[in-house]
Simulated scan of single mutants.
Amino acid sequence: MKWFEIILVVLTLGSGLVLLLDKLYLRKRRAEKASLLDSEEPAVVDYSRAFFPVLAVVLILRSFVAEPYKIPSSSMMPNLLIGDFILVNKFSYGFRLPITNTKIIPVAEPKRGDVVVFKPPHAPDQNWIKRVVGLPGDRIGFHGDTLSINGQPLEYKVNGEYVGNGMTGATLLTEMLPGRTHTVLEVLGAANPAGQGDWEVPQGQYFVM
């Protein structure tokens, strides 16, 4: 996806530069040799004129408005299934430059319960889709099958047995996450000891699950 973004930026800037040079210099030079009606426009200018508006619109939409992502794993079941496509709002938390992803205009910060797409520090070439659970300064605990925030265990409502998508037999629960409740799946005995413990969320960072 990074290479696609780089190519898109290069093509957009390149075609725009060709049109600018044609307007400021090349068109006048052609006019000196023949009338504008009789002069033939170079192919590169013709292609740039045709593709620049399309490339510019795609770049603006993808960089500042919305971008599609495909769900790669079952970690967000039952709310998001493998193969689902989601459309991510690119300006919820601020406007960022393409390629570098540098925030230039802050808008808001992630809230507890938000589903976010991000590149984890240990795998910057991957897109992960998770839910924000801990905010800066929070103390998060996960033991057994229970999540706690600042020492307060979350409440869970049992909705019955889940059926479908390879997880038939799991228990469907509603997790009372402060600010935004949502459904989760529980498989008894499947908890990973390596993924349990207590953490304090540093300033400027978030805890996701």
Rank of each mutant, 00 (worst) to 15 (best):
V18R: 03
R62M: 13
A194K: 15
M1L: 11
I6T: 02
E186L: 15
V187A: 06
G144Y: 08
R30C: 14
L135F: 10
Y47Q: 09
G141Q: 13
I60T: 10
P120N: 06
I60A: 13
V163S: 11
G164Q: 07
V116N: 06
S39Q: 14
D84V: 03
R49S: 11
A34S: 15
Y93V: 01
L188V: 10
T183I: 05
D125Y: 15
L135T: 02
W128I: 08
V65T: 08
G141L: 06
L19M: 15
L188H: 11
L21P: 00
P68R: 02
G197K: 04
L80A: 03
Y47E: 04
I86A: 11
D114F: 00
V54S: 00
E40W: 12
L36W: 11
L61H: 03
L172E: 12
L59T: 01
A50H: 07
P202S: 05
V163Y: 14
L20K: 05
I82D: 02
N79W: 09
I82V: 15
F64V: 03
L13G: 12
V115D: 09
S39L: 10
L97P: 00
F118R: 05
K2G: 00
Q196C: 04
G166L: 13
P42M: 01
E5S: 11
A123V: 08
I104S: 02
G16T: 09
V57F: 11
E5H: 06
E200G: 06
V57I: 15
P42Q: 02
A194T: 08
K90L: 06
V107L: 02
G83K: 01
D22W: 15
K2Q: 10
G16V: 14
L135S: 03
K111F: 11
M76A: 04
V117T: 12
N150Q: 00
R180W: 00
F142S: 00
